[in-house]
Design a protein around this nucleic acid. Structure first.
Length: 205
DNA sequence: CTGATGATGTTCT
DNA sequence: GAACATCATCAGA
């Protein structure tokens, strides 16, 4: 079942945790892409100096003011785009970074989108893992771009949404520090990263 | 397998 | 002009 507005308007940390095991679906014409979300990070509020919006919103981050469910995509390191989901009620700022996905459907097209070459019979296991095991990687096979999807609403869009996937037990969920935010003096030790235990598509141990 | 390094350009100061 | 929620590639073990 598709996740509705009520799912996304809860507290950012809960949205982040509960997105684990859910399925991100993208329909692009006749192609459908599905994958299980296996790793997320929460970016929360003024106290969290790792969050882009902790000193107020800018043109880049303005969508975070919207009601939970909207997509926040931004450019990083010149060449990559990262996919986030806005959480909380309108006017309350919080977002969840999707850090890794396990492909489920549309893998052949994902492969083409990511590597710019046709899917063939002797795919290395490493190439499949490498499709979606990082925050900048997963947007490429899904065919998601900032220009097309910044600000799109996952609760109402007809070509991108999140639906149920795996039912996880509490012990399947690992909570840890976020990745590559050492610049954040206060936030760097917050336990705001969640991932599925032992899943091969998680970006880092 | 591991760790180091360079690529690359938008955003913010 | 610096910083940056990263990745591909390469050298070494």
């Amino acid at each position: 079942m598709r996740l509705n507005r009520d799912f996304f308007t809860r507290k950012t940390i809960l949205v982040s945790r509960d997105l684990l095991g859910k399925t991100l679906v993208h329909r692009d014409g006749e192609n459908t892409y599905k994958g299980i979300i296996v790793e997320t990070e929460a970016y929360i509020n003024k106290e969290d100096d790792a969050a882009h919006f902790n000193k107020g919103l800018t043109d880049r981050t303005k969508i975070i003011d919207e009601v939970g469910g909207h997509i926040y995509i931004y450019n990083i390191y010149g060449m990559y785009q990262l996919f986030n989901i806005v959480a909380e009620k309108k006017g309350v700022h919080g977002a969840v970074l999707i850090r890794a996905i396990e492909p489920v459907e549309g893998i052949e097209n994902m492969y083409k989108n990511r590597y710019k070459k046709p899917y063939h019979n002797e795919i290395k296991k490493r190439e499949i893992i490498n499709l979606t095991n990082g925050p900048a990687k997963l947007v490429m096979p899904y065919g998601i771009t900032k220009d097309e999807y910044y600000g799109v609403d996952l609760a109402t869009s007809t070509d991108i949404w999140v639906e149920d996937g795996l039912d996880l037990n509490k012990e399947d969920i690992v909570r840890s520090k976020r990745i590559n935010i050492d610049y954040a003096e206060k936030g760097k030790d917050y336990l705001l990263r969640f991932h599925i235990k032992d899943n091969p598509f998680v970006s880092k141990k």
